[in-house]
Amino acid sequence: MGWLNAVVQGILLGGLYALFATGLSLMFGVMRIVNLAHGDLAVVASFLALALVGGTGLPLWVVLVVTVPLFALLGYLTQRVLLQRSLAAGPLATLLVTFGLSIVLQNVLLEIFSADTRTLDGGAFATGSFELSGAISVGYLSLTTFVLAGAVLIGIQLFLSRTGLGRMLRASSDDAETARLMGADSRHVYGIATAIAFATVALAGLMFAIRSSFDPSIGPSRLIFAFEAVVIGGLGSLWGTLLGGMVLGITQSLSAQADPALTLLAGHLVFLAVLAFRPQGLLAGRTA
């Protein structure tokens, strides 16, 4: 594998990070909530898919079609039942509630599924690849994930800019009180935002699960990837998140090429460098 191939793989990996980070970015942009359970939710989606495939024998794509809307519904309910209350109780409360959720989810998964490492078998599709040129081969799964990430981001962008609900969402993000005066029901709007966030988390969680192994305790390290992608790209900018994901992906991929032990450290160091020298992120934020 050459360096060029590492860059290509990094870009594709970055697509997955961006898909995963979108939910975090959206929830922060709209509600100013940093969802510390973000990574664990992706792992819950992975385990749910594993249990569905194992329990019912349904093909993977059906499981995917079931899981994603289910998570959207779950997101809407979580917002209305838990997060809305925490928003009223102050900024510390949202952090505590999502962190508490993270601890609960992690340990419930640990009790149900044990600490064993699992994988979701994606069949020939997950392992197959095609040669782009002599040195570069592109996996079907990576490419699909990347295309999916792009489609989701474009979809969310269109939703935010073209639809009435999207307009209300942006208005609530800019100034919740004035939006409420104009008739936007902020609780419903926030619920929709969380639903979208949860749906993308579930999708990303399934892609992670097909791509690499997972266990109940991996959520927090996944959350850190998403967080880094968001901060590198610029807070509250969807396209920034895509860029941030790619920067992170390329960094990890290149450093893995040099020394596999450096993969995580290099990603963190790029994040800290952005923090030190360009704290507003690469694409400085308009709000999503």
Binding site: L82, I103, V104
Partner: peptide, 16 residues
């Protein structure tokens, strides 16, 4: 690890 589940849940409840 159920005590951690309880801890998280109690923590959420107290925060709210």
């Amino acid at each position: 690890s159920w005590y951690l589940v309880v801890l998280g849940a109690v923590g959420i409840a107290v925060a709210l």
